[in-house]
């Protein structure tokens, strides 16, 4: 565990806390893509199946359970408790366009052709693009609430910090996982446009509004 990795995980937890707090406080999930949240839930479920087969540390298992639990809770808030506020007309990204290529890619580009390994690889590929329905929704409505922007910034920072962690681990431990690194880079690149808008607008107390 290095500082980048710790900060990454904290940013990830912060993102989840911001999202749940926003929905709970406003009693509304307006502006949040349920489809991105479905994809994230799928990502955690596929990746953390190994919680039963391999033990890394107490920290590791706790975080896995936290991500599984909170993603289930988020889906419950969006699709049950606050369903009337869910903006499904603007959440129109077709997730099959992400699921099918990720599934095919994980069958061909993996570390080992075994069920758990392919599911892990699928989750890594899917995570890298899972935010697209949310970004698509922001682009479609042309704006995002500040709190949604904070959520996206924390969530994007998490994988960017993992990239720093991988550089550190490559130098310090000669450890690297090419699949995770490339997918992590793709994931981070997808947020770049948003990061730019966040820094130039939201941090200056302006609403995130896209140019028409």
């Amino acid at each position: 565990m290095n500082i980048f990795r710790l900060m990454a995980d904290l940013a990830h937890v912060l993102a989840i806390v911001i999202l749940l707090h926003k929905i709970w406080k406003s009693r509304s999930c307006a502006g949040i893509s349920g489809k991105s949240q479905i994809l994230f839930a799928l990502v955690y479920f596929m990746r953390y199946l190994d919680i039963m087969t391999s033990y890394v540390s107490f920290y590791n298992s706790t975080m896995k359970l936290l991500f599984l639990g909170t993603s289930g809770a988020t889906l419950n808030l969006i699709y049950r408790k606050f369903k009337p506020s869910y903006d499904h007309n603007h959440d129109s990204f077709r997730i099959a366009y992400l699921l099918v290529p990720c599934a095919l890619l994980s069958l061909f580009l993996n570390h080992e052709f075994s069920v758990l390994e392919i599911l892990w690889t699928f989750s890594i590929y899917l995570e890298s693009v899972a935010i697209l329905p949310q970004l698509f929704m922001v682009a479609k409505t042309g704006e995002a609430e500040s709190i949604t922007s904070h959520y996206l910034f924390a969530l994007g920072s998490y994988r960017a910090l993992y990239v720093c962690n991988w550089v550190y681990r490559y130098i310090a431990e000669s450890h690297f996982d090419l699949i995770a690194i490339i997918a992590g880079l793709v994931q981070t690149i997808l947020y770049c446009d948003f990061f730019y808008l966040y820094i130039t607008k939201v941090l200056q107390n302006r609403k995130l509004q896209l140019p028409a």
């Binding site: 990795r5 995980d9 990830h12 190994d50 391999s54 890394v56 540390s57 590791n60 975080m63 896995k64 991500f67 570390h111 080992e112 892990w120 993992y162 962690n165 450890h175 690297f176 996982d177 090419l178 995770a180």
Partner: peptide
């Protein structure tokens, strides 16, 4: 890859 691929991350 075996040996390199340790899944100790989240």
């Amino acid at each position: 890859y075996p040996g390199i691929h340790v899944k100790d991350e989240l």
